[in-house]
Design a binder for these strands. Structure first.
Lengths: 231, 231
DNA sequence: CTGAAAACAAGAGCGGTGCTCACAAAAGTG
DNA sequence: CACTTTTGTGAGCACCGCTCTTGTTTTCAG
């Protein structure tokens, strides 16, 4: 018989949710390094030390926020790239656009996961699975195609990988369960790097004034990568 | 008659240099948001308030560090890409490698300029010129070639830019004084985005364990971009 | 050389931070 | 009801950025 959660457990999860919510709202105006537990406690009408019953340090809170952000972004990408009647190329660009939309909507959370590492913060084990989910979702829409056209990719400007790189690509292919050719892995990573780079530059205002909004530029990148991937 | 700097001026610039040096060393173990002026003053054997004679706020110090970082990186790229007997393709890859080497050698400074925006920090006017220097130096080795082969670029997978994008690309071409075709601007920005993205991912540990070191991966990206640029 | 002006340093202080610890109040359990 | 676990309290430590007043030192003009 499933005994439901005790009132105490309910209160606890409720409080945790509130803490996270307040942390996020605080994060939107400052940055991870300046997240103030005391301020959260204050808004929670709780004495400052009480918050340590929920998160034993600020880093722990930040880790929770990072995990949430990965999950959230991952889900958004999964939805955008879900298999359906659209062609692969369309699903690919939808996935990329979803990533940009998420990043523009929640720039501080994007910075949390793909921005520069936090102060002395070390990413614990907990974050690597959710991080993988994002990568999976990002590559998801295209791996099928890349699998069936094993030899075609590699034409689009990629040189034949050397021995070292080849090994690393195979390891990565294995780790991500892609089952595509090394060159395809390379092309996927290249696309990922460009998308992350473009978003990083845009969010931090590095696009020399000329690109506001950068919609068209981003779309051009995405379209180009689609071509390079042979979609 | 050039009256040399007064002793006081000498002491001042000397102190400023020391402050920056201490700030950098502090930055290598923490992050910009945690830079402590008090700690610097302490190591300088000076009372904490005295440091405000040199930088009137922490943000001002950070701005100075950012400007220095841009200049430093810019100089490194300029040296690596200087015109000489090497072919263009080689100068391009040397420039990209120089950027990576700089980033690996000074990850905190790279994060300062290309990482996620600092807390509540707003980049003041002073930083945009040095930032431009980096972009110039990065594009420098290849613009000549792109200029002389106006029509060739555009073949490598780039679709014809739409009207909006075309206008933005022309504005950017103008702003950077490139004088290359819109598609070439696009290709250059794409290369820049991928390089920044690759470095961001590498420095923040996003390369799924498999790429350590990521030398070969980075080189493959650079080589690929060279091909895409038609070098 | 002297005296005013400018630059610098000192020290106290304000309000804020993360985090710890001993203790009191609830909430759940036998 | 007594007992244990969990949650909240409040004081306190050592730090932070930054301001302000006071005193010292250096520069420079007369």
């Amino acid at each position: 018989m499933a005994k439901g959660p005790t009132p105490r457990e309910v209160a606890r999860t409720e409080n945790i949710a509130r803490i996270k919510r307040l942390a996020l709202s605080q994060l939107s105006s400052t940055s991870a390094g300046e997240l103030s537990l005391r301020a959260i406690a204050r808004e929670l009408n709780i004495v400052s030390s009480a918050i340590y019953r929920y998160y034993s340090s600020r880093d722990e809170l930040i880790t929770a926020l990072i995990v949430d952000a990965y999950d959230d972004l991952g889900r958004a990408l999964e939805e955008a790239g879900a298999a359906d009647r659209r062609g692969v190329r369309r699903r690919w660009s939808d996935t990329c656009r979803a990533m940009r939309e998420w990043a523009l909507a929640e720039p501080h959370r994007f910075a949390l996961v793909y921005g520069s590492a936090i102060p002395g913060y070390r990413a614990p084990q907990d974050t690597i699975a959710p991080a993988g989910r994002v990568v999976d979702a990002f590559f998801g829409p295209v791996v099928d195609v890349l699998r069936s056209s094993r030899d075609e990719v590699g034409v689009n400007g990629w040189s034949r990988p050397g021995r070292v790189l080849l090994g690393q690509l195979e390891v990565t292919d294995e780790a991500l369960g892609l089952e595509v050719s090394p060159t395809a892995v390379l092309a996927l990573l290249g696309a990922f790097a460009r998308v992350i780079g473009a978003l990083t530059l845009e969010l931090n205002g590095h696009f020399v004034g000329g690109f506001e909004p950068a919609d068209a530029l981003f779309d051009a990148f995405v379209d180009h990568e689609a071509t390079l991937l042979g979609l």
